[in-house]
Design a protein around this nucleic acid. Structure first.
Lengths: 128, 128
DNA sequence: TCCGACCCTCACATAGATGTGAAGGTCAAG
DNA sequence: CTTGACCTTCACATCTATGTGAGGGTCGGA
């Protein structure tokens, strides 16, 4: 699959897909003519990368973390040095922090929306 | 409370607290001499802001969202126009997306860590 | 009174993610 | 063979969050 197709299927601009390669997060193969050649799995991969970027995870971390997201039961303990494990634990904790903050804010927003909507259409009001 | 104290209590650099004010996310009062004067509640507020910033939520959105995080049961439907509500719903959904991505990645990292640690110290192995 | 620890504003610098466009190669269809 | 739709690299521009520092004001204690 060439870059244009992947871009269309993911909604991610070509520029960003090249950036993902430049930062080592998603490195495609190459055709004889130099064109990038993405596999089918690159679709999920690219979406996951974008999701993490949007959640504020820097490319440096994504690059470190992706190898262990790749394995789906198949453990090919790629390099798992103690340092890598420590880093992964820190990143896991930092992700938990982000999740906590996001959840609390989202829930507060949800409650707010529900309350206001409830006040606006009292006939649908449910006992809170 | 002056900016230095708030900075110490939150671990957030003074520069950033001034930035929070500049962007309208956390606007303190002023003493007679021009010094910023923060309330006690600013501690939580500042921490929440930092948490959201780290989770990739832009200041523009945080500013919109904070007013409805403020109320703790006390509904003073500040401006709640339909447009604001729509925006809040979009932000809520976008936060849910972030949470999903983060959770999936974090869980994958956790599984990976557990697996590797389990393989490393088999005497502590638990049936998976 | 003067020094040190605070505070102020202003402004420039950096780093990361992203936009935009130029100059040019590949290839299939007309 | 030419045209058009792709692709390539390179490079500069932008926006946001953050660092850093200069130049200067406030104020309490030695």
């Amino acid at each position: 699959m060439r870059i244009g197709a992947l871009s269309e299927r993911t909604g991610i601009p070509r520029r960003m897909l090249r950036y993902y390669e430049e930062t080592g997060m998603l490195v495609p193969g190459r055709c004889g003519n130099g064109y990038r050649d993405y596999e089918e799995r690159s679709v999920d991969r690219a979406l996951q990368i974008r999701g993490l970027l949007e959640a504020g995870v820097p490319t440096r971390v994504i690059r470190q973390v992706l190898p262990c997201l790749k394995l789906q039961g198949a453990i090919h303990d790629f390099d798992a040095t103690p340092e890598t494990l420590d880093l992964l634990e820190r990143e896991r904790d930092s992700m938990s922090d982000r999740i906590e903050h996001l959840s609390r804010s989202r829930d507060a927003i949800s409650r707010y929306i529900d309350t206001v909507r409830g006040a606006r259409s009292p006939e649908r009001r449910v006992a809170a």
